[in-house]
Design a protein around this nucleic acid. Structure first.
Length: 740
DNA sequence: CTCAAGTTCAGG
DNA sequence: TCCTGAACT
């Protein structure tokens, strides 16, 4: 008999909150699903309040056929306007339609407004429990602790008044939802005193979520819909059931009734190919239909992990943790160049890469300033076609390299990556890469992204500010800053006391394959002939090589001290770099703070431990990677930043030519080819010896909590889905073995 | 085991 | 559509 398994997850209280906009929703019901649309609408409403109630659509670009619709208003739909129509097409169907444009910057859509709006809301929702930002407008909350606290200190039945908002909850399985006394029924349900503890916890969770949603409304004018259930999957499912601005509770006893008739494609990971395979392979349509298949059978068909996952979700079981993460793991910027717009010259590719990198760099700088995080990997991806040629089906490869801060360097590195990729794409040495009109290739999309973002010690914030404050006025300080982070230890996913040697080999880790690979990855100078003015005397664009070399020198210095302290090198090299960069300033060496040891909630989490002390208070601030305060918007520094960065960065095809020479003097003075490293060596060497005395070179546990958290997170990239822990029968699902 | 690169999925 | 981001292989 298929029954949802209790296991440990059943007493958790998980909420999924999906933003929408209530007052907007009444006017624009189609906007219920996202802050993106809501925000753009709000902005537009302020500008032009007349838009209310009119057939409206949000459109991206208008160059070609009026742009692409990303959101269509209810009124417009009545006119027959559909998503995936072109703007001009919608005009034909609905001449009076109002088209609102997504902001454009650097020739591409700019979503920073929406990202910031999402951050605004997240910062409020994150206050009552562990919060995971699941997308630009969704979060998961683990409210277990808060709900348990509430149950002890102020259970619903003890309250004289229940929030109106909570009374408007939908309780799956509760009778007479639409009767006139629906709220009274909900009240009774919430206040039942002698029931399953799990339901009482959900009731507490519902009260908390209701309050959170009200607070979001008050402070941001956005509304949210929410689902409250015992795991993420169910919460997510529930949050979409009553929109907008409503919340839905899934009592344990209603899980089966919810899932059994649910079309399989509605499940979170089954909307695509896997869902289709399920339908065709098994001839099923609902989640309930899945119950008849054994776990072994599902594993046989779809692999160990997926099979087990399927078997579990069909029973409402999902052990996925709510990750305490409010900030994105990566930043990216991309653009497509469909059809005739395909890029056919190196110059045009470089132009667009520069635009993309400019945006990326700006966002990275904001992240650094506001969240004190550094990204360590730059990735470039593109799609391309090849006119004829044998293997025209080959895909354009992605390439990555260590990320160096500074717009110009990012641009330079991204361009190098592109050239390496193009070379590979076209085959070893197809002489004609530099394209003119008669090219055989075209680039139909480009994107750059930054990942492996880790926090820097909080004490260095002042350093960051110091340089940030100065770098706009003087490019030398900018250069200095670049150098700092260029040198920053990548903090690659190593650094566990178990194998400290890994740190020593870090260069290889950062750029596997060693030098040979690197040489291949980096375009050879002869291929840059057409752009030699770009890269001339500088060590030919080999950003990667520079990076490697720098890191080698960086590592080689400490090596001279002793070989036995490798485990601490990671910390110290990081510290010393910062010290080095900060030389003109006052700030003292930053010893990893050992307080705030509550850091890794993992330790406290699993059982609902006695960490229940507060109710309706800021709970466990460590869910925020950095500060318990607000999530910093990632890009509201645009104004001050653009003054410096935009002016010094190209807006034309060959801007690099004017830009690079400007920076080169500093590189040559400080870091060109061999000499540069030596200078760095000296300084870092000095800092090193100093730091060695200052710091107890132990291990990871001595890092600041934020670092620890991040490092451990890197060490434990979560395997696919769920599965309950310590559950007897399904414990083996955690087996590290991968399926094919 | 980790990594880079490829694929899939989900949103607005 | 186009753009963004996460996760799995």
């Amino acid at each position: 008999m298929p029954v949802a398994r209790p296991e440990t997850s059943d007493s958790r209280v998980i909420a999924h909150v999906d933003m929408d906009c209530f007052y907007v929703q009444e006017l624009y019901p189609w906007f219920c699903r996202g802050v993106i649309s809501s925000i753009s609408l709000t902005v537009e409403q302020r500008k032009q309040p007349d838009l209310r109630g009119l057939p409206t659509a949000v459109v991206q670009y208008n160059a070609w056929k009026g742009g692409a619709l990303i959101a269509v208003s209810y009124e417009a739909r009545k006119c027959g306007v559909k998503r995936s129509m072109r703007g001009s097409e919608s005009k034909q169907v609905c001449p009076q339609i109002q088209l609102v444009q997504v902001p454009v910057a650097r020739g591409k859509a700019d979503l920073s407004t929406y990202r910031n709006a999402g951050s605004e809301v997240v910062s409020i929702l994150a206050m009552k429990g562990r919060c995971e930002r699941a997308s630009i407008d969704e979060v998961y909350l683990d409210l277990t602790d808060a709900a348990e606290t509430m149950l002890v200190e102020a259970p619903p039945e003890s309250l004289e008044v229940i929030e109106e908002e909570a009374l408007k909850s939908h309780v799956l399985g509760l009778q007479s939802e639409d009767s006139s006394d629906a709220k009274e029924n909900v009240r009774k349900w919430l206040c039942r005193s002698s029931v399953d503890r799990r339901d009482k916890l959900l009731a507490c969770g519902a009260l908390i979520v209701a309050e959170l949603r009200l607070q979001v409304l008050k402070e941001t004018e956005f509304t949210c819909s929410a689902g409250i259930a015992h795991n993420k999957m169910l919460a997510k499912l529930a949050s979409g059931m009553n929109k907008p601005a409503q919340q839905t509770i899934v009592p344990f006893s209603s899980v089966k009734g919810l899932l059994d008739p649910l079309p399989i494609k509605k499940m979170k990971q089954l909307g695509g190919k896997l869902g289709s395979s399920l339908q065709s392979d098994l001839g099923i349509n609902t989640v309930g239909d899945l119950l008849q298949f054994s776990e072994a059978k599902l594993q046989e068909l779809y692999g160990i992990n997926t099979g087990t996952w399927l078997w579990n979700i069909a029973r409402g079981v999902s052990g996925e943790e709510v990750e305490g993460r409010l900030l994105p793991k990566s930043h990216g910027s991309g653009k497509t160049f469909p059809g005739p717009q395909a890029l056919k010259t190196i110059a045009s590719v470089q132009h667009w890469l520069n635009q993309l990198c400019e945006e990326l760099s700006e966002r990275l700088q904001s992240d650094l300033d506001q969240n004190k995080r550094i990204a360590h990997t730059l990735m470039m991806h593109g799609t391309a076609y090849k006119a004829s040629d044998s293997d025209s089906h080959k895909k354009f490869p992605s390439k990555s390299c260590p990320l160096r801060y500074g717009t110009a360097k990012i641009q330079e590195d991204a361009f190098s990556l592109f050239q390496a990729a193009l070379r590979e794409y076209l085959g070893s040495y197809t002489a004609k890469i530099q394209g003119n009109q008669n090219n055989q290739w075209g680039i139909t999309s480009l994107s750059v992204s930054a990942s492996k973002i880790v926090p820097i010690p909080s004490g260095t914030a002042s350093i960051t500010k110091y340089f940030h404050g100065n770098h706009t006025s003087c490019s030398s300080t900018m250069q200095t800053q670049d150098t700092i982070f260029e040198e920053a230890d990548p903090l690659s996913p190593a650094g566990k006391e178990s194998n400290p040697e890994v740190n020593v080999t870090k260069p290889q880790i950062e750029f596997p394959g060693g030098e040979t690979t690197i040489k291949h990855a980096v375009p050879s100078s002869d291929q840059l002939e057409d752009k030699k003015d770009l890269l001339n005397d500088q060590n030919p664009c080999c950003s990667s090589e520079n990076q490697i070399q720098d890191e080698f020198t960086q590592e080689s210095v400490p090596l001279s001290t002793s070989g036995s302290e490798h485990c601490s090198q990671m910390n110290q090299s990081r510290q010393m770099n910062i010290n080095y960069g900060e030389e003109p300033c006052v700030i003292t060496f930053n010893v990893p703070s050992s307080n705030r040891q509550e850091q890794k909630r993992k330790a406290v989490k699993d059982k609902g431990t006695s960490s229940i002390l507060r109710f309706f208070k800021n709970q466990d601030p460590s869910c925020a990677p950095q500060k318990p305060e607000r999530v910093k918007n990632t890009e509201d520094v645009k104004a001050p930043l653009s003054v410096g960065s935009q002016s010094r960065n190209d807006s034309s095809l060959d801007s690099n030519q004017s830009e690079l020479p400007k920076e080169r003097p500093f590189e040559e003075a400080g870091a060109s080819s061999v000499g540069g490293s030596s200078q760095i060596e000296q300084r870092t060497g000095a800092s090193w010896s100093y730091n060695v005395d200052e710091i107890d070179p132990s291990v990871i546990d001595e890092l600041p909590p934020e670092i620890q958290q991040e490092v451990r997170a890197l060490l434990r990239p979560h395997k696919r889905h769920n599965v309950v822990k310590r559950g007897s029968s399904i414990a083996h699902y955690f087996s590290p073995t991968k399926n094919a």
